[in-house]
Nucleic acid binder design. Structure first.
Lengths: 346, 346
DNA sequence: GTGAAAGCGCTAACAT
DNA sequence: ATGTTAGCGCTTTCAC
């Protein structure tokens, strides 16, 4: 049998001081004489003491834990839910975001609790989890518009921060990139390359982000002398991008430039171009969005509009943290600049 | 200001019973009269009571939380650590595994805490996290052999379960697939197709899994009349697979079949084949390993050796759970069968 | 079947 | 600068 883990009490006895003093040393509070500090530290070492998190959380009313929840529409079945989780995780976009979150949390010895909320029931569980004090707040990634979760959390007065603009009427802290500006950057680049018959593959148009990218792109193309841009809606997957491109090429065989609303679709677009005998960028230039892991690995390497996702994710975590600590009482909105990363595809 | 969350006490007062009775109802313990149960449930509803997890954990000595730790070698810098996290998450293999874990945990209202342990310091933190009782056990995914974490955890008597065989000398529960058998399946398929000059791209050979796949493949190929198989070591990435294939084709231009030790590398192999003017599967047949998300989406769709990863992950979670509950005292080892999934590439 | 009471291990006033 | 003390909200004997 494993013997009982040592408690503050044990350490105090060992060091010949009171529990309070040990607690002060453990929590790095000054007002403890250096020699006593040493004695305590030694006692901690000898006993192999590790503070009990539940006990601490009970009195501080802090779990020192945050939830990272991926919210979106998905199937109801268990299998579909697992597939949703797997698909989201595998998305290179998500990988960078989690990396950013981790970078912020790690120095604080915090680790995110991973939650998926694609059904009403799952959303309830997320709210319940937070209400139990299991986590102090939530970082929410919505994969579709009109996601009810942010509102649910806000109504329950639970700290949260969003990646992407919140639904109208819900005031919560969030970070976002200037999608419109990103679309403009793509248009400017294609125009500068001399593309005259440009098309675009958008994301799901119920997503404001997808709409804004399209809008910025169209507006800029109009300024460049192409007021009408063929548009095909995609689903942010490579296969969806390829299908959209095949459709576009069938309708407009002379297309010489394409803006895809994310890198995965841009990869699909390039594949479709190759399959129809077109060279990238000579016959058709391709620009993606995100600058996710797949962009640089593309064939050819993808010119894309970069979102500073790690930075955005870290900022989102900071906003949440401020809310939890009570440093911030009004929701903040931080919008980051998009940036064109020129590689070989356009 | 948010008003205090209701406690058991509040519910008890509201229902006109004692705290103990409310606790019994909340925890579904029988021996409570039906009418009292109803009264309590109503009081819970009215007060909006949610049990405090820290308080419960303090007395039950259970966090009802498990850690999902990705352990491996990586750089020391913060940026490299973030990149490690991002790379692992993005790996389609990992996506399926996490999906399997989630499927097991969700019905139990549990959510995994995501941890990365690629440095000695990070490993210490994982151990410390568990020792504090923040999580009841760990699911460990080692990305390289000789990972010290399993031993560290075992020595500290902390419940854990591994995906893949543990280091020699460390007895911990784990799940694995029969890699040797998987290699054999690939060899049999290539031989059955009539491939006579077969080569292979392995994973990092310090990984027992990679060694075993190679070993099973070579042994079977010898039986099929090709005792010497050109071998090139890869790194489980698509780019690495492509590079390895280019090398193989330069040395052995007449290669007519390739077994890649994972799907990502197989994708790279197919790309390299295409770039050198070879058609898959007509000029060169390609078989991958894993049947991860990218396999079916490959061009052409990839024939591959399937690991039942969701099932393996769920089993691993169950083994951990049994350890935590004390139902299991001796480590278990569950090995799953590999299965050939035939698509178009071979 | 229900209640009273004793902690779980810790922090934070408050004394000293 | 250190110790004393009173809980945090819950589960769990043990009486009744």
């Amino acid at each position: 049998m494993t013997r009982q883990a040592p408690t503050l009490e044990d350490v105090a006895r060992e060091a010949g001081v009171s529990r309070a003093t040990v607690s002060r040393v453990v929590n790095g509070i000054r007002n403890v004489a250096p020699d006593i500090q040493d004695a305590v530290r030694e006692a901690i070492e000898r006993t192999g003491y590790a503070p009990n998190r539940a006990a601490r959380a009970l009195v501080t009313r802090r779990a020192e834990t945050i939830a990272l929840v991926v919210s979106g529409a998905g199937g109801e079945s268990e299998q579909e839910q697992s597939a949703f989780a797997s698909r989201m995780l595998t998305d290179p976009f998500f990988g960078r975001v989690v990396g950013g979150v981790i970078t912020f949390l790690r120095p604080r010895s915090m680790y995110p609790v991973l939650m998926f909320a694609e059904t009403a029931e799952a959303r309830r569980q997320v709210v319940s989890y937070l209400r139990q004090g299991s986590a102090d707040g939530a970082l929410v990634f919505s994969t579709h518009a009109a996601d009810p979760l942010p509102t649910l959390l806000a109504d329950a007065d639970l700290p949260c921060a969003l990646f992407a603009r919140p639904p109208a009427g819900t005031a919560v802290s969030h970070v976002d990139v200037d999608h419109r500006e990103g679309g403009r950057l793509a248009a400017d680049r294609l125009a500068a390359r001399g593309c005259r018959r440009v098309a675009t593959v958008t994301g799901p148009l119920d997503l404001p982000a997808a709409r804004d990218r399209l809008d910025g792109f169209q507006t800029a193309m109009a300024r460049h002398g192409q007021p009408v841009v063929p548009v095909r809606e995609g689903d942010f997957t490579a296969a969806g991008g390829a299908a959209a491109m095949h459709w576009l090429l069938a309708e407009h065989p002379d297309t010489d430039g394409v803006f895809a609303a994310n890198d995965l679709m841009a990869i699909g677009v390039m594949e479709a171009a190759g399959e129809t005998g077109r060279r990238v960028p000579d016959d058709v230039a391709v620009i993606g969005f995100d600058d996710s892991g797949v962009a640089a690995a593309g064939r050819p390497p993808l010119t894309t509009v970069r979102q500073p996702m790690e930075e955005m994710a870290a900022t989102m975590a900071r906003l949440l943290q401020e809310q939890i600590e009570g440093t911030r009482t009004t929701p903040a909105s931080v919008v980051f600049d998009a940036e064109l990363v020129v590689r070989a595809s356009a």
